[in-house]
Design a protein around this nucleic acid. Structure first.
Length: 113
DNA sequence: TTTATGACCTGAG
DNA sequence: ACTCAGGCCATAA
């Protein structure tokens, strides 16, 4: 049973998923980051869509703060209204147009020793 | 094989 | 700030 893309070796897929989950786990309270940033830091810069796929389908992701991942324009995930509530509970401010104030809350991964 | 559909991104108006 | 087109990549029909 294959649970990784044809374009990746099992090895690469494992590394990618680990990278994604590891980064999501590091997002601090009250901060957010984007699919594209995560993809790049996981070593696959053009695979933003796969990050979303991973978070959507990987059981691991549900025990992580995946509500702190939004798209580059600060939009929350479609069909997941609770995401906004969760973020607001952490103090994340939303603009009138339903976008996160990225200027204020964007977090980027750092090198961890 | 072609087309459509996503937890996406960028650039042009 | 908004829409639109084009690119992107995996999957399903």
């Amino acid at each position: 049973m294959k649970d990784y893309p044809d374009t990746m070796t099992p090895e690469q897929a494992r590394t990618f998923q680990e990278g994604v989950l590891n980064i999501v786990a590091q997002i601090p309270r009250g901060k957010v980051t984007t699919y594209g940033i995560i993809a790049a830091w996981a070593g696959w810069p053009s695979h933003a869509r796969m990050v979303g796929r991973t978070l959507r389908y990987s059981p691991e992701a549900h025990s992580l703060p995946c509500h702190r991942v939004v798209n580059v324009s600060g939009r929350t995930a479609p069909g997941w209204s609770a995401q906004r509530t969760l973020l607001e509970k952490e103090g994340v401010r939303f603009k009138p147009n339903c976008h996160v104030d990225m200027k204020r809350h964007l977090w980027e991964p750092e090198m961890n020793l």
